[in-house]
């Protein structure tokens, strides 16, 4: 019997999934920290300096590839898992499962898909310009002038709405993801797991609210 599309044991896949997820969660912290510089009120100066520093650092260049790999692994593995899990119950239940589980945990794939769609939009908006796949908007001074791009983008209420909704789902995804990754890696302790769960909730809220502030700020207060 073929185990899965990839020849890794269930637990190895779980590990890789969790590690990739953890890496992405760390990335989100850096991403958010940088983004929040947009709110410095200096017309994006501090933000631009940070971006310039980051884009010129060779380490970050390497990390960029790692980041892509992280996303790719997390997404592909997510698909593989979903497919495998779908097949492991060929005849479905007539009545929906009513076990009380955290809603977020049940919809990791669904929120994942939404986040993926958002990611594509986000990449179109900001990243593909750098690769030259999408034309640089007129108002941006140069390829890395994300600040101007953001200003223009978020003054469009539709984009702001898309981003905000996506952040809500991101929050849902992260709420489960945070403590789940610890569980998957076996980092579990009767004393600390409850703490991890609380931190997970704080993290999920902080990330989604933190990111949400930026489009809201540009839409209403800029």
């Amino acid at each position: 019997m073929k185990k899965s599309v990839i020849n890794l044991s269930s637990l190895s896949q779980k590990y890789v999934m969790a590690l990739a997820g953890m890496f992405l969660m760390i990335f989100l912290i850096f991403h958010l920290a940088t983004n929040l510089l947009m709110l410095a009120g200096d017309g994006g100066k501090a933000f631009s300096e940070a971006v310039t520093f980051l884009t010129e650092s060779p380490l970050v260049k390497i990390m960029e590839y790692v980041l892509f790999a992280g996303f790719l692994i997390h997404i592909l593995l997510g698909l593989v898992l979903q497919w495998h899990n779908y097949r492991s119950r060929p005849v479905k239940y007539h009545t929906r499962l009513r076990s009380e589980t955290s809603t977020f945990s049940r919809f990791m794939f669904h929120t994942g898909v939404i986040i993926f769609v958002f990611l594509v939009i986000h990449l179109i908006n900001f990243f593909f310009i750098r690769l030259g796949w999408v034309a640089q908007p007129d108002h941006a001074a140069h390829q890395h002038d994300f600040y101007s791009m953001a200003v223009v983008l978020f003054q469009n209420p539709w984009y702001t709405a898309i981003y905000l909704v996506s952040f809500v789902f991101l929050g849902f995804h992260l709420k489960h993801a945070f403590q789940s990754s610890f569980q998957s890696l076996g980092l579990n302790h009767t004393k600390y797991t409850p703490v991890i769960k609380v931190i997970g909730i704080i993290y999920a809220i902080a990330i989604s609210v933190g990111f949400a502030i930026i489009p809201v700020y540009f839409l209403f207060f800029y």
């Binding site: 019997m1 185990k3 899965s4 044991s9 269930s10 896949q13 779980k14 898992l81 495998h84 899990n85 492991s88 119950r89 589980t101 955290s102 945990s105 049940r106 990791m108 489960h176 789940s180 569980q183 998957s184």
Partner: peptide, 12 residues
């Protein structure tokens, strides 16, 4: 794994 059970996604 060989028996065809699904994978865990920590829903508990």
């Amino acid at each position: 794994d060989a028996e065809g059970f699904g994978f865990c996604s920590n829903t508990y």
